[in-house]
Design a protein around this nucleic acid. Structure first.
Lengths: 159, 159
DNA sequence: TATTGTTATACTCTATAACTATA
DNA sequence: TATAGTTATAGAGTATAACAATA
C-alpha cells in the first residue's frame, strides 16, 4: 500500500467521534503530547517520502552532519535509538549511498560515521521538506501557541 | 590497559557523548515532542504498573467511565486505536473483571461497554496515580512551562 | 573485564484482510 | 451492501542476550 493511502487510513482511525467525551484525559499533558506527536509523525514522514527518507533516517543524517566522525553508539545515544537497531538503519543509509562507515583510528572497534556528497545533497533537500513541515505545524497550532510550545518543551530535561 | 589510561578513555568517551550536537533538530517541535512523549510514557506506565494497568488500558477505562454504553468502535476511534487491536485490550480488561461487554439493544452487532464496581474502584486508584505523575511532569517542566504547554497543545486540532 | 558493532530472538504495536452475525 | 466485532497475519519498533574483535 502506498504511504499516502496508509496515511489516510490512519487519519480515519484517529478521527474523533464527536459524541465521545475523554473525561480526565482532557487535563493531562500526555494525552495532548501523544495526539500532536501522532500528527507530526505522519506529516513529516509524508514530507520526506518523496526523497525516500523517514524522520528517523533524517535525524540520523542530520546528527552525523553536525558531528562528523561520531560513532554509532554516540549517534544512537543522542537520538534514543537502541544500538542493535542502529545497525539496520545505518545499513539502509549506506546502501542508499548516503553515509560511510570507516574504522576509527583511535579505537579500532568503533566506526567513524560520515556523509557522502550524495548524503549531503539529500540532507539539504530533506531540510527544505522538514522546514515546510515545520511551517505547517506552526500554522495549524497558531504562531503564538507554536512559539509557546517550542519554548516550553525545549526546556524539558530528560534523565 | 593501566587504570589511568582507562579512566582517560572513559572521560574521552563521556566528553564525546556530551559533545553530540543535534543540528537542525534543536529547532524542530517534533524532536521535543517526541522526547517529552517518551519520558511521559515511561513515567506514567511506571506509575500505573502497581495496579496492573498501562496508559492505554487506563485511557480506555477513563473513556468508558465518561461514556457508559459506548461501543468498541466509538472508544477505539476516540483514542486512535485500531478496532482489531481493541479486541485484545478489552479482553484483558474484561478478564481482570474491570469492564463488561453487553449486546446493545439498539444494534445487536454492537457491544455496549461499561465498568464493573471493581473497574470503578481501580479507575479511582489509577486517577490518583496519574495525578501524581502529572505533578511530576509539571515540576520537571516548571509550572510556567507546564501551563504554557497545556494551553498551546490542547488547542491543536487534528484532522 | 569492558565496550563496539553485530546477529538473533521475542514481544509489542500497527495495518490490513477476511470472516460472522447482524443491519 | 454495509457495519461491529473478531481472528489471523505481516511489518515495524523495542528490548535483550550473546558473540567477535578490540580496548
Amino acid at each position: 500500500m502506498p504511504k499516502s493511502e496508509r496515511a489516510r487510513a490512519q487519519r480515519d482511525v484517529a478521527r474523533q467521534d464527536a459524541r465521545i467525551d475523554l473525561g480526565e484525559l482532557e487535563s493531562h499533558l500526555g494525552y495532548f503530547v501523544r495526539r500532536l506527536q501522532h500528527w507530526i509523525f505522519r506529516d513529516v514522514n509524508a514530507a520526506l517520502a518523496p526523497i525516500e527518507l523517514d524522520v528517523i533516517l533524517y535525524s540520523i543524517l542530520e546528527t552525523i552532519a553536525a558531528n562528523p566522525g561520531a560513532t554509532q553508539i554516540a549517534v544512537a545515544g543522542a537520538l534514543g535509538i537502541e544500538r542493535a537497531r542502529m545497525v539496520a538503519l545505518l545499513d539502509d543509509l549506506q546502501q542508499a549511498g548516503l553515509i560511510v562507515r570507516e574504522r576509527s583510528e583511535q579505537d579500532r572497534r568503533a566506526h567513524a560515521l560520515g556523509l557522502t556528497p550524495r548524503g549531503r545533497m539529500i540532507l539539504k533537500k530533506a531540510n527544505v521538506a522538514v522546514a515546510a513541515h515545520e511551517k505547517r505545524v506552526a500554522r495549524r497550532l497558531g504562531a503564538d501557541n507554536y512559539r509557546r510550545a517550542l519554548t516550553a518543551l525545549s526546556q524539558f530535561e530528560t534523565d
